[in-house]
C-alpha cells in the first residue's frame, strides 16, 4: 500500500468521481472520491493524502478553502485545482496560495493523469502512466 499514490478527489459533480476513480486506479493510484467538501475536509483531517484534487467552485466551501486547509495540515500534500474556463483569476490565486497546478474544465482523463504523474515525480514516486500519442 505504501508505494501506491493516495489521492483524494473532490468535485460536486458525481460523474467526475465516477469516471476519474477507475481512470486513476488504472494508473496505480488509491483514490477516494468526495462530492461534499465538508466530508472531504473531515477525511483530510484523518489521513495524509499524497495528492488532493479539488474543484475550485462548490456550494458549501470553495476549493481555495480546501487548499488552505490542506496546506496548513499537510504541507507535503500536492493540491491540484480544477477550475472553470472563466476563473483564471481564481486559478492564479490558488497558485499563489501554494497549489501544485490547476486544470481547466473540460479536460481529458489523460490531462489529469499527466498532472498527477508530474506531482508523483515531485513526490519521488512514480505512476504507471505514459501519455497517449
Amino acid at each position: 500500500m505504501a508505494d501506491k499514490l493516495s489521492i483524494l478527489l473532490l468535485d460536486d459533480e458525481p460523474i467526475v468521481g465516477r469516471r476519474l476513480k477507475p481512470a486513476l486506479t488504472k494508473i496505480g493510484c488509491d483514490v477516494e472520491v468526495f462530492e461534499n467538501p465538508v466530508e472531504a475536509v473531515a477525511r483530510i483531517d484523518e489521513k495524509e493524502f499524497d495528492i488532493v484534487v479539488t474543484d475550485i467552485r462548490m456550494d458549501e466551501m470553495d476549493g481555495i478553502q480546501v487548499l488552505e486547509h490542506v496546506r496548513k495540515k499537510w504541507p507535503r500534500t500536492k493540491v491540484i485545482m480544477i477550475t472553470g474556463y472563466a476563473m483564471m483569476s481564481l486559478a492564479r490565486e490558488a497558485m499563489e496560495r501554494g497549489a501544485f497546478d490547476f486544470i481547466a474544465k473540460p479536460f481529458k482523463p489523460d490531462d489529469l493523469r499527466q498532472m498527477i504523474a508530474n506531482a508523483a515525480r515531485e513526490l519521488g514516486s512514480t505512476v504507471d502512466f505514459t501519455p497517449a500519442q
Binding site: 459533480e13 460523474i15 467526475v16 469516471r19 476519474l20 477507475p22 481512470a23 472553470g84 474556463y85 472563466a86 476563473m87 481547466a104 474544465k105 473540460p106 479536460f107 481529458k108 482523463p109 489523460d110
Partner: peptide
C-alpha cells in the same frame, strides 16, 4: 454569458471524461 459559459463547462467536462473513459475501456 460568463456564468453560463462557466456552467456549461461542468456537463461538457462530464461528457468528455465519460467519452474518453468509454473509448479507453
Amino acid at each position: 454569458t460568463a456564468g453560463v459559459a462557466h456552467e456549461l463547462n461542468n456537463p461538457l467536462n462530464n461528457i468528455m471524461l465519460t467519452v474518453h473513459m468509454l473509448i479507453e475501456d
